[in-house]
Design a protein around this nucleic acid. Sequence first.
DNA 1: AACGGGATGGTT
DNA 2: ACCATCCCGTTG
Length: 200
Amino acid sequence: MHHIPRNKLKQSTEEVAKFLLGKILRSDLGKKSVSGRIVETEAYLPSRDSACHANKYRTRRTEVMFGEAGTAYVYPIHAKHCFNIVTEQLGKGCAVLIRALEPITGIETMQARRNLDDIKRLTTGPGCLCQALGIDKNQTGIDLCDEQSPVRICDPAEELEFQIGTSVRIGVTSAKKRKLRFFVLGNSFVSGSKKLNTAS
DNA sequence: AACGGGATGGTT
DNA sequence: ACCATCCCGTTG
């Protein structure tokens, strides 16, 4: 299982959001190894996107968004965390939010961290998957392309065929309604309503 | 120091 | 539809 080359993450944020579907997100935090298949993402664009944190302000919190593609941007919200992957060229200020995984390995560890047995809800939703992987804001700034990193993105052992669904981004009210959310069509670990998830 | 708004998620 | 919860940027 090989890590993703950084070049792939330097493309346009929308392209990266689609590219990341089907890839593996792995965490070795806390001496536990867990992984899942990325099934839902959202693009936060470098310009004219009022929902993108970096577009609104460049502060200590958002500074890593202006760094190398493949850097982790983790921020807290509503007592939970959201995990993002920085995209495009240095200084752009954009990222892809990972919204849902299909659990693959380390399911018992994830169940313990989530204090929840139900596999269907283990890693569905950005806050839930962070908790399942042991990710919090301490992981902001780490390099997801480095094989030595405790959190990284890898190619799947087996490439599966799937169609990509699109919709507006979930929970975003400030930006115009472009379809910047992408998901594996028909996958039961995707978050959001039936109405959003049948749109293509 | 105080205030208010979320890229949430679980409950009513 | 409601709201618990808490961090962070803004304002005073």
